[in-house]
């Protein structure tokens, strides 16, 4: 591979930039993956530079190197997408975030919180096939003062077991394929911020499927355990106040099951009920 001219990805509503420099197949795929992203606050420029052989990459913000990664052959886009998303969430000053899937039902946001492997992606995919709109597979970007969740539309990382669990994927297109992972951007995307209506904590459980209320206090504690603005020490008071505000006006549920189809059926029924 040879060095290429920088591919510049502009985050349209942000006023910020992600500048990508490196071999074109990778930077092009990354640019396309990030092209639907909207962030409403002004963020500094993130410079991502790949080595000519695409073995390593650096992330620099305001002249400071934030990270350096070694890239495994065959999976650079997934790795770099994760790094860039992580950097963006670190740079947030106003919005809050939590690692979660987000879908919309009639303009009301459902936020699906769970550990890695809890089935967020398969649940999001299955819900989209049941009429929900796509906001994110990875990050719930939240504005507590307005009580809304904003789209964070990067492609879903669909792994073989995700596809098996979710069944057919919702209408959309593959932005890139790396190994057995397909980065899938659904067509039916929510383009505007929508009201936060429900938080759902996804838990694995034994046989049976159960969707039940959880106290707001317990859910706040659960959110603090996840990758979220709570993990940024300097934002702790802001995160506490913001998530408290959001939870006061949201329905809080816990969903226990190991069966993705049953999970999606229950959530789709629940999500269509007005809050």
């Amino acid at each position: 591979m040879t060095p290429e001219a920088p591919a510049v990805v502009r985050l349209p509503s942000a006023g910020g930039l992600v500048r990508l420099t490196g071999p074109a197949p990778i930077t092009t795929a990354l640019a396309e993956s990030l092209s639907s992203l909207r962030i409403r606050e002004i963020l500094p420029i993130i410079d991502v530079t790949l080595s000519p052989d695409a073995r390593t990459a650096d992330g620099v913000v305001n002249g400071d190197r934030m990270w350096s990664v070694a890239l495994a052959p065959g999976t650079p886009v997934g790795t770099l997408l994760g790094q860039i998303v992580g950097t963006l969430t670190t740079l947030l000053a106003e919005s809050l975030f939590v690692h979660a899937g987000v879908v919309g039902f009639d303009g009301r946001g459902m936020i699906l919180v769970g550990e890695s492997g809890a089935g967020k992606t398969s649940t999001v995919a299955a819900l989209l096939r049941r009429g929900a709109t796509y906001l994110s597979d990875e990050v719930a970007l939240l504005d507590p003062s307005a009580g809304v969740v904003m789209p964070f539309a990067i492609p879903m990382a669909v792994k073989p077991w995700t596809r098996k669990a979710a069944g057919a994927l919702p209408p959309g297109r593959a932005v890139v394929r790396e190994g057995d992972v397909e980065f899938w951007l659904p067509n039916d995307r929510e383009m505007r911020p929508i009201k936060v209506d429900t938080f759902v904590l996804l838990r694995h459980a034994g046989p049976g499927t159960r969707l039940s209320p959880i106290s707001r206090a317990a859910l706040l504690l659960a959110l603090a355990q996840h990758v979220s603005s709570f993990k940024q020490r300097h934002r702790l008071p802001q995160a506490f106040a913001g998530f408290t505000r959001l939870l006061r006006n949201a329905r809080c549920m816990v969903l226990e099951t190991t069966r993705p189809a049953a999970r999606a059926d229950l959530l789709a029924t629940f999500g269509r009920r007005s809050g």
């Binding site: 106290s215 707001r216 206090a217 317990a218 706040l220 504690l221 702790l236 008071p237 506490f240 106040a241 408290t244 939870l247 006061r248």
Partner: peptide, 12 residues
């Protein structure tokens, strides 16, 4: 900081 939710309290 403290937040009251129904009959539970969370303190940061």
């Amino acid at each position: 900081l403290a937040a009251a939710f129904e009959d539970e309290i969370v303190i940061l």
